[in-house]
Write a protein that binds this DNA or RNA. Structure first.
Ligand SMILES: [Zn+2]
Ligand SMILES: [Zn+2]
Ligand SMILES: [Zn+2]
Ligand SMILES: [Zn+2]
Lengths: 165, 165
DNA sequence: ACTGTAAATGTTATAACATAACAATATTAT
DNA sequence: ATAATATTGTTATGTTATAACATTTACAGT
């Protein structure tokens, strides 16, 4: 992770042009998969689109029921395989505290994000912060622990849901 | 959280006197529940003991099967109710990335810990770090997000499991 | 001690999340 | 074309968690 000054989502969940989010995400995904010679098959692509339908984390069974509606009966492995693929490619992140998945706007670079999850509206914003990363690495090093992967999820209230101010 | 200089566990999982961990934890729990006028009933107490049997996070159904062994058939709600109570009182923490629970050595004070989870031996150490807390709070404030609760879990290799060095 | 109330536990069923195992099909390389 | 590999289909099951309602227990006020 070099330089993400931009935040994936600034909580303007209702006011931004989300069609553009989706369009960009899908284009990035296509390009990335092409460059990596991995196949973003129709099923995988559709699951990614469904996850990108909002900035709310989506459960596997939500995806499943949408797929079933549009393509006839679909079984859980179909969804979980697609999710696995998308995770491997960094195209989505899993929100552990919700058992749900959310699209990543910066799949090209390996990174460990921080998710700010609004308990009011349900939106999740992925942000990055060098100071946090550094503090975690330093702490781990102090204790002789070698970090490999991490989960950082903060629940609270987003600016859109705060009683003004 | 004022001042936890000490780490709950320093990864000496096999070499420390774990009987003492358990004993202390149970005494602290008894005292805390008394002071709060909440009831650490035999069932709740036993679940807490079972969770404290090691520094490895324990799944609800692991607890369930142990209870079933020792007390005859037990149903999931029994365990989940006890876990809920113990969580409310801060006596245990839930590790989201493992769907498992681990004892807290500092239940008296509200705090947000950081869990270092060894993917090799499975132990989980709860640590605290002011720099991390501060960095997260600062980042949230910058974005206008009001944090209320958080999950911070780092998976990796603990010092005991590193190929020496 | 009796009794009303609230808290805790028991019980049954089911919801929600996830994977194992194997068969069938599609893609790619030779 | 053929073989090897990747993907998808299908069935069954494993794992984690909660809803709903009955029963029992603890406890405060009389
Ligand atoms: Zn991301
Ligand atoms: Zn919100
Ligand atoms: Zn703790
Ligand atoms: Zn270890």
């Amino acid at each position: 992770m070099k330089n993400f000054d931009t935040v994936s989502l600034s909580f303007d969940t209702n006011n931004h042009d989300h069609g553009r989010c989706i369009h960009t995400a899908m284009k990035v995904a296509d390009k990335l998969c092409l460059s990596r010679s991995v196949r973003l098959t129709p099923a995988r692509r559709r699951v990614l689109e469904l996850i990108w339908e909002s900035h709310h984390p989506v459960g596997a069974y939500d995806v499943l029921s949408k797929l079933s509606q549009e393509s006839g009966k679909t079984a859980p492995p179909t969804v979980y395989r697609a999710l696995e693929f998308l995770m491997e490619q960094g195209l989505i992140h899993r929100i552990e505290s919700l058992n749900a998945y959310v699209g990543c706007a910066h799949p090209a670079e390996e990174h460990a994000g921080l998710f700010l999850i609004c308990t009011d509206c349900g939106c999740a914003a992925e942000v990055h912060d060098e100071a946090i990363d550094q503090a975690i690495v330093t702490k781990a090093a102090t204790l002789g622990f070698r970090p490999e992967q991490r989960t950082l999820e903060v629940r609270g209230t987003c600016p859109d849901c705060r009683p003004n101010s």
